[in-house]
Amino acid sequence: MGTTQSPKHRKHLLDDTTKEINEWTGEAKAVEIHPLRMFSEVFDRHSQDDADEVFSAGTKVTTPPLAAVSDAPVKPWLFSRVLVILMVTFGLLLLLFYAFKNERVLPGLLVMGSLVVPLALVVYFFEVNVFKNVSIWRVVEVFLIGGVASMVATMLLYSLIPTSNGTDLWSAVLIGLIEETGKLLIIAIFINHLQLNYVFNGMLIGAAIGAGFAAFETSGYGMDYGLIVLMIRSWQAIGTHTIWSAMVGAAVVFAKDDYRPLTTQTVLRPKFMRFYFMAVALHALWDWRAPLAWLDIFYIHQLILIVLGWVVIFVLIEAGLREVRTLRQAGIPSEEHIFLPLP
């Protein structure tokens, strides 16, 4: 009896969770999560022209008017090709290192191992941005400058707030607060500077900054602790800084008032606070060494948090599609759709 009911109970739990999170975005209903549908095009054939078309988005010519923006379920695929290319490159570098004892490839291993998952995730969020109003050039700029700047902001906060390197809950909470706040400051600066107003835009900018943070941080850990730690942190990056910062980026957009710049007052809004503290909580729980030994078996602790983090992301994607429908129904003129020229 219990076995036959378990899928139903899991469905109710998922529905309750997505409904609660979706209420934070302004809609009181559960979100249907269909990962197989979302990733269905990953296994389809795509030409080089298809890839070029995806990467051409965000220019003055290729940014569509708001009336042409699709609110259909997103089906990104190019990120998987980027992931394969990065993995193959990393694999060849490992071959050079282990089979041919070539130690000169170690810097390349550190760089590529750190980039594999974060960079693929950036492409994923680039594809998910259905407004297509941010160019890949801009994303690379945010990834590099924003990633390093967020580390600088974090280090400044660490110098002001005493913390320890422990894995107890309080230390983990402090680390989560400091690092997510450091990234938040840079995310807010970029979103304000680029005058971005849409949920998908906020997620993309947040993800790019979080991915940069993750890549540079992981390369440092790899240098200190070796290739095994590098590879562990690499696959775990699917559920860490990149998606946490995507949540914070969405929260920044939620906090803006009628597309006006973010202020210290607007960050007190519940929509912002809930998603910001969700990112902090996920970060803290990730760093916390829970007093339950079974959570360390096969990385159960991390896998649970990865799934929960992606549930939040899927809800935010649904909120972004709902925003598209709302804007189109409101009849906002297409010329008000934002195009981001290069500086």
Rank of each mutant, 00 (worst) to 15 (best):
W170S: 08
S334P: 02
E103K: 01
P35A: 07
L96K: 08
N197F: 05
L230E: 02
L184Y: 14
N192R: 09
A284W: 10
K271H: 11
G202E: 00
I243L: 06
H301D: 09
Q329D: 04
H301K: 06
E32C: 14
S334M: 04
P73C: 10
H301S: 06
S114W: 00
I175K: 06
G202S: 06
K19I: 14
T163P: 02
R10C: 15
A290H: 09
F131R: 06
L109G: 01
W286D: 02
S47H: 03
V74S: 10
S171M: 09
D224W: 01
R138E: 00
F190T: 04
K256G: 13
D258N: 04
W288G: 15
L305D: 07
K256M: 15
F100M: 00
H193N: 09
E20L: 15
E127Q: 03
K19T: 15
M155R: 11
S159E: 04
W77D: 05
A208C: 12
F100A: 13
F314M: 14
A250S: 04
L92Y: 01
Y158C: 08
I209H: 01
A51N: 08
D258T: 11
G147V: 10
G220T: 05
A28E: 02
L342K: 05
L14V: 13
D71T: 03
G222N: 07
L83K: 09
R260D: 15
L342F: 11
L295D: 03
F277R: 12
T326E: 00
L110M: 02
S40H: 09
P76A: 10
L95T: 04
L327A: 10
W24A: 14
V130C: 03
L169P: 11
V74T: 15
A290R: 08
I145T: 06
M278V: 12
D50H: 05
R289K: 12
R37D: 02
V248N: 07
G2A: 15
K29F: 14
E32G: 10
G202F: 00
V54Q: 06
G147Y: 01
H193I: 04
